[in-house]
Design a binder for these strands. Sequence first.
RNA 1: GGGCCUGUAGCUCAGGUGGUUAGAGCGUUACACUGAUAAUGUAAAGGUCCCUGGUUCGAGUCCAGGCAGGCCCA
Length: 1120
Amino acid sequence: MKYPEYKAVNYAEVANEILEFWEKEDIFRKSIDEREGSPTFTFYEGPPSANGTPGIHHVMARTIKDIFCRYKTLKGFQVNRKGGWDTHGLPVELQVEKELGITKEDIGKKISVAEYNQKCREAVMRFTGLWSDMTDKMGYWVDMDAPYITYKNEYIESLWNLLKRLYDKGLLYKGYTIQPYSPAAGTGLSSHELNQPGTYRDVKDTSMTAQFKVQKDEKSQFLFDQAGDDEVYILAWTTTPWTLPSNAALTVGAGIHYSLVKTFNPYTHLPVNVVLASDRIGAYFNEKGKDGDFEAYPTSDKKILPWTVLGTFKGSELTGIHYDQLLPYVQPEEGDAFRVISGDFVTTEDGTGVVHTAPTFGADDFRVAQQNGVPAILVKDENGKDMPLVDRKGRFVKEVADFALEYVKAEYYTDEEIAAETEKQGRDKYLSVDERISIKLKEENRAFNVQKYEHNYPHCWRTDKPVLYYPLDSWFIKTTAVKDRLAELNKTINWKPESTGTGRFGNWLENLVDWNLSRSRYWGTPLPIWRNDEGEEICIGSVEELSQEIEKSIAAGFMTENYLKGGDYESFDLHRPYVDDVILVSESGKKLFREPDLIDVWFDSGAMPYAQWHMPFENKEIFDKAYPADFISEGVDQTRGWFFTLHAIAGMLYDSVAFKNVVSTGLVLDKNGNKMSKRLGNAVDPFETLKNYGADPTRWYMITNAQPWDNLRFDLAGVTEVRNKFFGTLTNTYNFFALYANLDGYNFTGNPDLSKCTELDKWVLSKLQTLIKEVDAAYEDYEPTKAGRAIQEFVTDQLSNWYVRLGRRRFWKGEISDDKKAAYETLGLCLKTVSQLMSPIAPFYADWLYKNLTGDAEKVSVHLSDMPVAKEEWINADLQTSMDYAQRISSMIHALRKANKLKVRQPLSKVLVPVLSKETRQLISSVDELIKTEVNIKSVEYLDDDSGVLSKKVKPNFKTLGPKYGKNMKDVAAAINGMSKEDLKSLETSGKIQLAVGEIELGDVEIQTEDLPGYLTAQDGNLTVALDITITEELKNEGIARDFVNKIQNYRKDSGFEVTDKINIQLQNNNEELAKAIEVNKDYICQEVQALSLEVIDSLSDAAELEMDEFVLVVKIRTA
RNA sequence: GGGCCUGUAGCUCAGGUGGUUAGAGCGUUACACUGAUAAUGUAAAGGUCCCUGGUUCGAGUCCAGGCAGGCCCA
């Protein structure tokens, strides 16, 4: 075969060609089918939502996913990857509402729920075409022919099955959660609504600091001991005094310091002992009153409170202390209320550092109470259901006797009502509930401070009235019941990076609260629960089951027809509104109505391992082989989203992890580190980028520039760099190989005969084996960045810039020979191996390279090949060290030449290399031919100790000295630096020496050689070279000859000769020195420039003039 | 406010278990080289390793506290 040669390679075109080839040959399918019967490697696709267009960050995320799936395929696994679409959720609803110009209010009025949902169904799949296009163009392999779609009846049925199983385990229950609620509008508000402009306003409310009376027991005894009194109060501050009747606990910060302060109540002037955060004393007490006169206070003007600190302690010492209920209207039926607990949200920025905790009216309060087993203060409504002390209209319930049926916020009254209330209070001005609670507590010696407080508070965007944080009904999954098990299972997951697993995810699991499933919306999976006010309920787990229940309901006369019956899954819809019309019958024969909620869309995605296969109704065998996942990857922002929901469902229902390895990826930012957004116009268009740069350079850049979990600053200049530097070099190297292999008609076999190989061949093959090991380990460890960087370094530094550059003469000199074959075998094998190693990251280019190299001889695609396995016996550590020396010595000689204006074409006679050991000498001499060629030096000579001309320098080796001498390091270092020649000699012969500071061994020092007088010397670490720059006449002539060759070669090329053309040269004799140099080196010159004749003649017409240093060449070249 | 991540040259990034002189690529400048040529080599300039304390003979590296940016959650 001929190796295709390329003039200029366009990587985007390469991608197009290969994509066409993949599609024609169905390579993706084959890569899976050919591994039939092999162990499976399971990947779960986190479903994207197709209601938006894909961005460049999706290319990043999908590259990561693709890399490991391709890698595992190369390693012999069968890797199925089913695509999917996430179709439910608020973003879809909002988009549809925007397009239709409606709000949630209008649903059911201007537009029916059925029509609305139909719009959502259309909108959500709108951009699937764009997504498929991007998937193809970026080279991401995922099965898009049979994706799972979360709105399908089959998918929803699987979800219902999971929910039913949770329900049967008692893990699905109805409770409440604290949400922003507008009593005036009678509705809860979403965070989206709360983020409308103008909702947060500065308002003045009555704030108060209340005194909670500590009960005396073992736990609190120390307070009473310090106070020397029977009354101790804890101070807590609130901006909503109306929540005080609902107080159930006081929350402190475990690490915050608190003080016990003796003082007087400013309203009753009675002596009191109060507890508050030490940092807050300044906010409550005047410095003038510190350790003031307690005796004089009752008779003074009482303007300044005397106070004194009696003791200080941490919040953790207060937890568990009980106190008397402040406003004892209602007591909880069970549970341990009215005690001090600790919470992480407590600060000392305002208030007293003690938070009054009303579980029914604050989200933090609710959470901390639940975590500590503190009950909420509830009453029964007329139906016997639990309700808080404030009703849904915002009024106190009748049990709060002093304020029964009064609105807790004055804003909820109309002006007329205010007037009526004022009259009822018998005052000339209306006093709010907050104000009258303050007065009441002042009178009871329970208020320590009351004042107006201005703060920022949210208001309902529709009614303009303040919102309440209020408990609303919700369905929950009791994840807290399996919290410990989830944490345990998490420890078996391999997280990349580890900190996301232990930190972000681990902490989240530790502070887990029950999963709030309810969403009051329209487009989503309906909650399959029907219930009535008597508390009878039924949870449906399948279409079949629902159908049977409907039949019962028809029999009971509640329904007339069964919309599920007889049809296949295409003929009905499990969404609202149809499912809402279903009325079931309870065991006692009463009507059951569906709970109107939809479930959190995160449940949709977390259930995909089961629902994508319509489990448990179908595909059980497939599922068993594909569970749990070996690998998933998504953005780190999914930690509490998809990663959690997968984990939670798997833990609760299968007592298993859902995934064994997970890579959480960072963000893709613009080149300045700003978030990309379409609005700001700094978003990078993935299609443009793929078109202009090609998928492979784009992918390669993304992977090698930053670790997947670090944020990536995406800069197109970086893609250009990767394209030129890495892909350009690799393509050049391939072209070089193809050019000469074709000229010689040689096809490499991939099995070089080491006995025929040069040191350089063996070296690069040794490096190649090391590379295979390194890259394989990196992929195995989910470290694609390390893999890519290692490949890149090998290609540019080792293979191209050293192996090819030093060895290129072998490729174009002479006829085909064993040596030439060895060179072709070596280079060919390196290129082919590189194509395999890089194929997970750059799938198009790698396949292109592989196919160019192998033709039809092997697998038709690199992606069907097997990952190369390193040949340990080819790894030669000595050779690698030798070559390292060669590179460093060459580099130093280049530097010396440069500094002394001695160009490389001028040969020099010798370089001296001092060597301190036989081993070093051996290592260098094995490669000194290479050094000589590379830097154009006639000989390398070695200077060892016996030569007597070496002067040596000794330096301390801190690493070994450290543990021995520790504190005395400075003295020891000084002593070593001050060693005499004789000292060093005796250290070298006996292996140790006794200095004033102690005994030093040979390993404790580093010995280096110093400059050699009379030579140009250079040093790099432990290596020194000394260059002899004497230029003899012979050397000078040779230098001229080489310059001449160079000029002729350029001229040949400029004149358009082919590489293979033979020529005849005529040179005018215009300089004796030049003529002589040419004459002496005639054979050499002819061979280099492929000249059959070279004549130096006295006169020449029609000749070209070429500048060459101090000479002018008048020369004529003709094809022979 | 909490959890997690990041901070090293103009830019993008390396820098096992602490070891004294902190590296690479790109970019800039200069000079070379030129059957790989949209390449290549050599060199120069460029650093408060975010800050402050601490541990240590020795800290970019370990500890504590900050600062800045990001993500998630309140």
